[in-house]
């Protein structure tokens, strides 16, 4: 497949880096200010070196990338809320040309799911977005394999930064501010960790799961989610939980048409009590009990692996 990769952050760059390993070529690669386009396939190593050294991918105009030759558009620009632009327009451009779109950007499928699906219905192309939920973990494709109608609930730890903070607080008996600063030093938390710690990121993932589970009947957006973050969790609360064989995790819960994200008490030894940046999704199936999928929920190569898995499914 020929890929047009829009977005040159950790995920977009990793997709470009790993594409040839999966038998694909990259015909267009775009960052926020520049692009490199070559219908014969770009030299990915050279381009990635240039991006690292000079901060630009090439000298072509970014707007030309959407009309370049490709089979799959990989939308890996940062997630935006509301109208989900410019990610949504990129997906639209691909579908209107009967090309496939694979998303790592949560915006279009969390905020404008019905619009995306409507465009897909009119197109020869398909939309896949495994990478938007749980990084490398095959959550959406597993739901799809079982069929959404056979999944009654999904609960999970879907934000590694929040989980890192909570598990560090619990094991070290440290307070939120202290552990957050440590997480930022380690690069686990971003300079502005708001979306991770206030539950927004996990909620977007919950909303995407809810959209997939509802199978086009009801559309969910971030506004439909009940969201609470971990900023108010104190060391003493975690200590009390631990004395009782429990711990606190930021859990995203999608059940019976509701999406809820908040700190919850879970038994210390429960599958959901993963530690560090690890993620987990627990699917409640109608006929096969619980299914736990655990792994790395973020990171460039991890998320790119999910993008490339989607491309393989097309």
């Amino acid at each position: 497949m020929r890929l047009a990769v829009i977005g040159a952050g950790a995920v977009g760059s990793a997709v470009v880096d790993l594409a040839s390993d999966h038998g694909h070529s990259v015909t267009a690669f775009v960052d926020s200010s520049s692009a490199v386009i070559d219908s014969a396939g770009i030299d990915t190593d050279e381009v990635l070196d240039r991006k690292r050294a000079d901060g630009v991918v090439g000298s072509d105009a970014p707007e030309d990338a959407l009309s370049a030759e490709y089979d799959v558009l990989v939308e890996a620009t940062p997630t935006t809320l509301g109208d989900a632009e410019p990610g949504f327009s990129h997906v639209q451009a691909a579908l209107e040309r009967d090309r496939h779109a694979v998303l790592a950007n949560k915006g279009p499928v969390a905020e404008r799911y019905a619009d995306v699906r409507a465009l897909e219905r009119e197109s020869e192309g398909s939309v896949l977005f495994e990478a938007t939920v749980g990084g490398a973990m095959p959550i959406l494709s597993t739901i799809d394999d079982f069929d959404p109608s056979h999944i009654t609930a999904v609960r999970g730890v879907l934000n590694g930064t929040a989980n890192f903070i909570l598990s560090r607080m619990a094991t070290e008996g440290l307070d939120y501010e202290h552990v957050l600063a440590e997480a930022q030093d380690l690069g686990v938390a971003e300079a502005d960790p708001t979306f991770d710690v206030d539950g927004t990121d996990a909620a977007l993932k919950g909303v995407i799961i809810a959209n997939v589970l509802s199978d086009n009947e009801t559309e969910y957006t971030l506004d439909d989610a009940e969201v609470e973050g971990i900023q108010e969790i104190s060391g003493s609360a975690l200590e009390l939980a631990r004395a009782d064989g429990r711990t606190v995790r930021l859990i995203a819960e999608v059940v019976e048409g509701s999406v809820r994200v908040g700190p919850r008490l879970v038994p210390d030894n429960a599958p959901l009590a993963v530690s560090g940046t690890r993620n987990i999704a627990q699917l409640e199936t109608e006929h096969a009990g619980q299914l736990n999928i655990s792994g790395r929920g973020a990171g460039g190569p991890e998320t790119a692996s999910a993008v490339l898995a989607d491309i393989g499914r097309l």
Partner: peptide
């Protein structure tokens, strides 16, 4: 006050 709720029955909690 702030409540940390248990995960509902059906989960592991």
């Amino acid at each position: 006050l702030h409540v940390i709720e248990p995960l509902a029955a059906g989960g592991d909690a």
